[in-house]
Amino acid sequence: MDRNKNEQILVDGTLDVRGESCPYPELYTLDAIKNLESGKILEVIADCPQSFINVPESATRHGHKVISTFKDGSTLYFYIQVS
Rank of each mutant, 00 (worst) to 15 (best):
T75I: 13
I33A: 04
V11F: 02
L15W: 10
V17G: 06
I33L: 15
G13S: 15
E37I: 13
D12I: 05
S68L: 01
F78G: 01
Y24M: 14
D47V: 07
R18V: 10
H64N: 11
S58Y: 03
A59E: 01
E20N: 09
H62M: 13
N54W: 09
K34I: 11
G13W: 09
E7L: 00
I53L: 14
D72Q: 13
V66T: 04
D12R: 03
L10K: 12
D47G: 01
Q81N: 05
Q8D: 00
S83R: 12
V11G: 03
Q8N: 03
V11K: 02
L30W: 08
E43L: 15
I9H: 02
C48L: 12
F78L: 03
N35E: 15
T60K: 14
K40H: 14
Y24L: 14
H62G: 08
G13I: 06
I45Y: 12
V66F: 00
I33Q: 01
I45R: 15
P23R: 07
F52G: 13
G39L: 01
N4K: 07
T75L: 10
N54L: 14
D12S: 08
D72N: 14
C48D: 15
R61Q: 13
V82E: 02
S51A: 15
T69D: 01
D72F: 09
K5S: 05
E7A: 00
G39M: 02
L42R: 04
S68M: 02
S38N: 14
Y77T: 00
Q50H: 14
F78Y: 04
G13C: 12
N6G: 07
V55E: 02
G19A: 05
L27P: 09
L27S: 13
F52W: 15
D72G: 10
Y28P: 01
S38D: 15
S74C: 09
I9L: 08
Q8L: 09
M1I: 07
A32F: 12
S68N: 07
L15I: 11
H62Q: 14
E43P: 06
M1L: 09
M1R: 08
P49D: 06
K34W: 12
P25F: 01
Y79L: 05
H62I: 08
S38V: 15
N4C: 06
N54C: 11
L76F: 10
D16P: 12
E26S: 13
G63T: 06
E7S: 02
R3E: 05
S74F: 09
K40Q: 15
S51H: 00
D12N: 14
L42S: 03
P56M: 11
G39K: 01
A46N: 04
L10W: 06
G39P: 04
T75N: 09
T69K: 00
L15V: 10
D2S: 00
A32L: 12
K65M: 10
T60V: 13
T69W: 01
S83F: 08
G63Y: 07
Y28F: 15
C48I: 11
V44C: 08
K5G: 00
E7I: 02
D47L: 07
N4P: 01
I33D: 03
Y79E: 05
V82M: 05
V55W: 00
I9W: 02
G63F: 10
H62T: 09
H62S: 14
L36E: 13
D31F: 11
I9C: 04
S58F: 02
E7P: 00
G39E: 05
G73V: 06
